[in-house]
Design a protein around this nucleic acid. Structure first.
Lengths: 217, 217
DNA sequence: TGGACCATCTTTGTATACAAATAGAGGAAT
DNA sequence: ATTCCTCTATTTGTATACAAAGATGGTCCA
């Protein structure tokens, strides 16, 4: 898109997803514009775009605020993710090439290796979360349905969802890795029903983990 | 949203969905603005919003065109609809009140009555299509998942999908009505698996009908 | 003290002006 | 005739200006 507008879009978006702008903070066009040294026009465009994605709420004549998510939102999001990512597995399995399966297996190997290292949680979890995202994205990409990918993207681009691994217990993490391995095994075997089922369970397990953690706060 | 911007958004949107703006027509901001007697600013905002919904494609510095959909897009759309609307049935069934079931049964009655009248296709089909949309929307609303509703909305707001009934053969129409009746019966019985299964079949049948018609052209 | 009303100040919505980028027409060279 | 180039005309992207709608704060009255 536009040069400046998409840059500021990315900036605000990253700030929201990383959590540094959360708390239904007000986003005043003029303030953002001067702090970025640009005019209101591209800021406005970026905000409207973020609103369309659901990352900010805008009310007429009252401006934009960072969107908020409660436990019910999270339930909904993980519920839909479980349906859609499971469907992605189903579509991807019969199309998977040997190279793609090898790629997925490699990520599983790396994640298992990472989990065993003596690094602190602060170092390990972001690395694991990154690989987790790559694995999920790859499967979605393999499903060859661009719309499916877009739908899932709009769902998972929510701060808490993006930081899922940060709230995982060691047991939950171990289980997550076993799910991954089993999903890839099922895909390699060409068993799409198996793969889809485990993916469903995998995402629903993540939901329980996140919701439990969230209520504890 | 804004007064003018949302009005023009609705106008362009309706024009696209009704098909009067199809054919990947170019949408020049200035032209739209003068023809509506307003400035480019709200037009621009409307176009970006339509782009976010997928109804128009915009390229940097090159403007907006009405989006196009091919057979593969339709396959994808109906595939995802079948998954999501089926899930809506599953969620809606255990929550359905007697009044809601009665409402759905009433729509089934009306559609069956309409199908039997001697009106010409030109009069009958739009009326049936309208009631069909109400029935599907009601079930989605009953699922009580706002995000699910939004996802489905972004999928079905595509010209050809909106005009599905217009390409139905009499047999396909009859089958569609029987599906509806069976879905409602299953929901009334509290059998969410039954309801979801028929809904899945219902949407996939629509896909075949639309794709068959589309290839024939 | 509490609440309603008014003035003002802030912030959004729209219009206009200007800069940057692209598309298209026309001409020159092969 | 075809291809490539340049120049111009359109069109988009951004900045600024102004109008309209909300928020804010203070005063007056009970």
């Amino acid at each position: 898109m536009a040069k400046i507008a998409s840059t500021v879009y990315e900036q605000i978006r990253t700030a929201i997803l990383s959590g540094e702008l959360s708390n239904s903070e007000r986003l005043v066009e003029e303030d953002l514009a001067v702090s970025l040294g640009i005019s209101r026009t591209p800021v406005r465009e970026a905000l409207r775009r973020l609103a369309a994605e659901g990352l900010v709420d805008v009310s007429p004549n009252r401006g934009a605020r960072v969107a908020e998510w409660d436990a019910d939102d999270l339930r909904e999001i993980f519920d839909l993710r479980s349906i859609l990512e499971s469907h992605a597995c189903e579509l991807a399995t019969p199309r998977a090439s040997a190279a793609e399966i090898a790629f997925l297996e490699n990520i599983c190997d790396e994640m298992e290796a990472l989990a065993k290292t003596e690094l602190s949680s602060e170092q390990r979890l972001p690395a694991l979360a990154a690989k987790n995202r790559i694995l999920h994205s790859k499967i979605i990409e393999m499903s060859n349905s661009s719309r499916l990918g877009l739908l899932i993207e709009t769902l998972i681009h929510v701060p808490i969802v993006m930081q899922t691994y940060k709230v995982y217990s060691p047991e939950a993490l171990a289980r997550s890795l076993r799910h991954h391995r089993e999903i890839v095994t099922a895909m390699k075997a060409g068993d799409e029903v198996w793969a889809a089922s485990v993916m469903r369970a995998h995402v629903l397990a993540a939901r329980e983990e996140v919701l439990g953690q969230n209520e504890a706060e």
